[in-house]
Write a protein that binds this DNA or RNA. Structure first.
Lengths: 199, 199
DNA sequence: AAGTCACTTGACACCGTGTCAATTGACATG
DNA sequence: CATGTCAATTGACACGGTGTCAAGTGACTT
């Protein structure tokens, strides 16, 4: 919490990250993290008030490591709405497997911990903004299917792109990651992009 | 477990059900259930070996109460594939809110308890069969969109209809239940039913 | 020599689940 | 009436995981 040796702090974050990735976010205890970081359990509490705070900090650490922001650049600079939609799905969809372990752990705490809930919801809200921006870009191009209002389309896209859906399709259904991306892009196009009937 | 006073047993099941429904599946402890049933905590353990077993039994109790089977009759007896798809979505989609509390609690145990995992997965597998049947019915009518293989279409429909997606759309996005049903039917039609271009 | 600081050690409280053993009280059966 | 059975109660306890507390250690200042 107040201890400010940055080296130790990041060692803890990295340990947390490694364990969560290895275990898909499951059964990782404070003691395991401490051990992995080469510290006593209590030392972890000198840097993070509690498990929730540690997990939240780990997601930020992860974002910094993996460059969550830079990934969205192609989407933001897309010329057309369709292009923006595609590249947003690709960026986010390929980010999910990289954050899966941590996301799962945070998601599990959501049920009991108030701060974890907030942190998770915040992340999802950010992701939703990406969905909204893509839908608005389509709408600006007059390419948004008349079947949905922009709000509705955003809700649906946001839901389609959830971590849970990624989990179900890739892990439960066994889709390879690239099939997941391709299919989601195709799905989104058919749902949201007005069909230019050839001829 | 072995105690066989059926009246007490169902009183426990009903207590569990009531609490889970009231709390959306959250923070319901064994002691709370016992209290609600007018029993000592230990008495609950005379009827159910552990929390997981109790929750699983509660889902069956719930199915019996709400007639999970009968709900599928319209879908099974549908004449066309499209009709079958529609009525399956309607039946399942309207069932979700009725089981939501219990489902959430079982889902939460899935992370830690092996029996709960099995029980949940079994239920999802059953639901998947409904999806598959609807897709096969479409395919038989030559109405399945060429964009997907039947397997893929089943995976997607199954994912679309997940409890988590229902939760996100109705609770997080605030869709009314009937809008949820309408939208999912419309979504599924656009994704899976070959478009007879009116010309 | 004294002080500071990150960290360690070990004990402990809390919570919820699950277990155990002794007891109670109602009801049946000879 | 005595005996047995059986559901349920009572109260204690173990366990695992989180979080807290207090005293101690050892390195590096000044």
């Amino acid at each position: 919490m107040s201890s400010d040796n940055p080296e130790t702090r990041t060692r803890i974050l990295q340990a947390t990250l490694d364990l969560l990735e290895a275990s898909q976010g499951h059964g990782v205890r404070m003691a395991d993290i401490a051990k992995q970081a080469g510290l006593s359990r209590q030392a972890v509490y000198l840097h993070f008030a509690n498990r929730a705070e540690l997990l939240i900090a780990t997601t930020h650490h992860l974002d910094a490591l993996k460059g969550s922001d830079e990934r969205l650049i192609p989407s933001r600079t897309a010329r057309t709405g369709t292009e923006r939609l595609d590249s947003f799905i690709e960026a986010w969809g390929n980010y999910i497997p990289e954050i899966y372990g941590v996301a799962k752990a945070l998601l599990a705490m959501r049920d009991t911990d108030q701060a974890a809930t907030q942190a998770w919801d915040k992340r999802m809200q950010d992701m939703r903004e990406g969905c909204e921006a893509a839908i608005m870009a389509l709408d600006r191009d007059n390419m948004l299917s008349p079947d949905h209002s922009p709000d509705q389309a955003t809700d649906i896209l946001w839901t389609l792109l959830s971590v849970r859906n990624w989990e179900q399709l890739t892990i439960d259904c066994g889709w390879p990651q690239d099939a997941y991306i391709e299919n989601l892009i195709s799905l989104a196009r058919r749902l949201f992009v007005v069909q230019t009937t050839p001829e």
